[in-house]
Design a protein around this nucleic acid. Structure first.
Ligand SMILES: [Mn+2]
Ligand SMILES: [Mn+2]
Ligand SMILES: [Zn+2]
Ligand SMILES: [Zn+2]
Lengths: 155, 155
DNA sequence: TTTCTTATTGAGACAGCGTCTCAATTCGCC
DNA sequence: GGCGAATTGAGACGCTGTCTCAATAAGAAA
């Protein structure tokens, strides 16, 4: 947390912004959640703890944190944007199950290297590399197979 | 177009659905546009030609076409979903410029193979593999460099 | 410390976009 | 042609994220 606070304050100063209680509160809150969470849920969690930060401010500061690289922003389903705090530069990607909604994370350095190579080839300067797979997870696949081949009571 | 109509009708029959004029119209319309387009613009284009298909129906049938694989659905910016007709299994991915909004497409078989390999390793059955890069395109990079290093009138 | 400038916040209105509802229509089968 | 179900049209609706603007507070300067 010292690490992140320092990085955030550094970014703030560097950009002629101001460090505020609301900013510290949003930073602490997002770093206390270790799953993907949307802005409204994060806001509700804060209100639940008695932290009076407005909805607009939570949205604004999550985006600020994303800009400064402490938080990542994903759209894993079409309904809402999810945020997640970074963990020391450990970038990962996602597989999303259509059936159960489960999100599986994976890290693959080669995939990233290859994306960077493509960018280089096009003279494109990337800020954000995303790989996303939508499909059916192993659990749902097994469940479907079990249902399909040997249902408890015959059809 | 015969190809796609046949594939669509086959999918329709296979799923106990019905072929309608609205479906044919949406299919023809999306295949007549060769850039990314959103549902409302496609709807407007149809109305412009005198095709009376409702907004909801355009949305519904674009999603149906996406389900059956004739159309792909992307969210290249956070504002809206864009659709694009497939071209004989030629899957591609996108780089989006933050500054000018330009979208650069690229095809890379290795990247796809690698994604499939990761899925296999996780027992994940993919329907949809997406790679998206957000950053700064070569044109904007050059424009920025020109502005930064040698402005017409001194600072 | 007090003063001053201005970035930030809060509260709610607003907007975009996609979904839903339900009566009317159309499809496909008999 | 008649029937039952799938599809459509029109608009209301809901969810998310953005914007507005007056009030507040950060932080530089005095
Ligand atoms: Mn994640
Ligand atoms: Mn494309
Ligand atoms: Zn699943
Ligand atoms: Zn550009």
């Amino acid at each position: 947390m010292y690490q992140e606070t320092a990085a955030f304050e550094h970014y703030i100063r560097d950009h002629g912004l101001r460090m505020t209680n609301a900013r510290r509160a949003v930073l602490e809150e997002i770093f206390s959640h270790h799953e993907h969470i949307d802005a409204d849920r994060l806001h509700a969690a804060m209100r639940g703890k008695g932290l009076d930060v407005s909805r607009a401010t939570v949205y604004r500061n999550l985006d600020l944190l994303a800009d400064c690289g402490l938080v990542r922003k994903y759209r894993l389903d079409r309904h809402r944007v999810l945020y997640e705090h970074m963990h020391a530069g450990m970038e990962h990607d996602h597989m999303v199950c259509r059936e159960c909604g489960r999100v599986v994370e994976f890290v693959n350095r080669d995939l990233r290297a290859q994306q960077e190579e493509i960018c280089r080839a096009h003279g494109f300067d990337p800020d954000d590399l995303t790989v996303q797979v939508v499909g059916c997870c192993i659990t749902c696949k097994k469940a479907r197979a079990a249902r399909g081949s040997a249902p408890p009571s015959g059809p």
